[in-house]
Design a protein around this nucleic acid. Structure first.
Length: 295
DNA sequence: GTATGTACCTGTTTGC
DNA sequence: TGCAAACAGGTACATA
């Protein structure tokens, strides 16, 4: 489940291993991962063939490879996507979806998009080398030096939506997924259903700081895991078994107070929290205390 | 603009 | 043993 730290590991791996390479052939083995490319599989392949990869960039969980003609190959790993740099004689992965044959700097290698569930995908963004217009709406991530903390705090406190939903809103802040949202909320001792407009600026600011810390820690661990004997640029950081306090720990004692961690359904997925450290907020009053006077 | 719910997708796990 | 349902969750989109 690649989140921001995992995607950054992939980006850094790509920056190291495919820069300057020319794409000489593209095989689209399944149409779904290129569904966002309106030209279809053949057009996608044609737009990439002959292009040279100039760099590797990222915003939130999206990453893109600027090309020598000003376009970019835009990618998202979704739930289960991987980008692997492999020698051509490596056997095809079971869920290999797209193969890019490379020449030049990464001579004789292949860049492979492998994705079991196919929530992820690749597309060619016209003129997207600097920032693909398809993702212009995606906010900066908390690790981006240009991220505006004060603006984030202001926007969260303007909405009545629960704070976890806001953490997952990529228009507000990018890169935070379900796992790190639960971890940041646990550290901040806030329940995810606390309405944004009922939090103090200090609380939102602290929550953002915890999100930043969780992701920075994961980045530190994941950053050392990929550069193996043969180049393996993937989304596995090995983070999940180690330092999670809330996510996936239903029934286990809270590391802070010992109460059993609870799991509740949330947006077609799960939320994990400590019922003592992160008390469920009281319901908002639905009837105003005093009825408004009619005009 | 905001708030909320759902479709998409498939391998694995769980339950009967 | 075999089958079906539940589950995992990031994003885009629909609806109010």
């Amino acid at each position: 489940m690649p989140e921001l730290p995992e995607v950054e590991v992939v980006r850094a791996g790509l920056a190291r291993h495919v820069l300057g390479a020319t794409i000489t052939r593209v095989d689209v083995l399944h149409p779904r991962p290129v569904r966002r490319d309106l030209r279809g599989p053949a057009g996608f392949a044609e737009a990439l063939t002959g292009r040279r990869i100039e760099s590797a960039r990222r915003r939130g969980k999206y990453l893109w490879l600027p090309l020598d003609n000003g376009d970019a190959m835009l990618g998202h790993l979704g739930m289960s996507g991987q980008l692997l740099v492999q020698p051509p004689d490596a056997p095809d992965e079971r869920h290999l979806r797209i193969r890019l044959v490379l020449e030049g700097a990464a001579g004789g290698r292949e860049l492979r998009f492998v994705d079991q569930r196919m929530f992820g995908g690749l597309s060619v963004s016209a003129g997207g080398a600097d920032l693909p217009p398809e993702i212009a709406h995606i906010a900066r991530d908390p690790l981006d030096p240009a991220f505006d903390d004060a603006e984030f705090v202001r926007r969260v406190r303007r909405r009545i939506s629960g704070v976890k939903r806001q953490l997952l809103d990529q228009n507000l802040v990018s890169g935070v997924g379900n796992i790190y949202a639960d971890e940041a909320l646990w550290r901040a001792q806030l329940h995810g259903e606390r309405p944004g407009d009922r939090l103090t600026a200090r609380q939102v600011h602290d929550l953002l700081g915890h999100a930043r810390t969780v992701m920075t820690d994961a980045l530190g661990q994941g950053g050392t895991s990929f550069d193996a004997l043969y180049v393996n640029v993937n989304g596995e950081s090995g983070y999940f078994d180690r330092s999670l306090h809330a996510y996936g720990r239903e029934g286990e004692p809270c590391d802070r107070c010992g109460a059993a961690i609870r799991r509740v359904a949330f947006m077609n997925r799960s939320s994990y929290f400590c019922p003592v450290c992160q008390p469920v907020p009281r319901r908002r009053r639905t009837v105003p205390r005093t009825l408004p006077t009619p005009d």
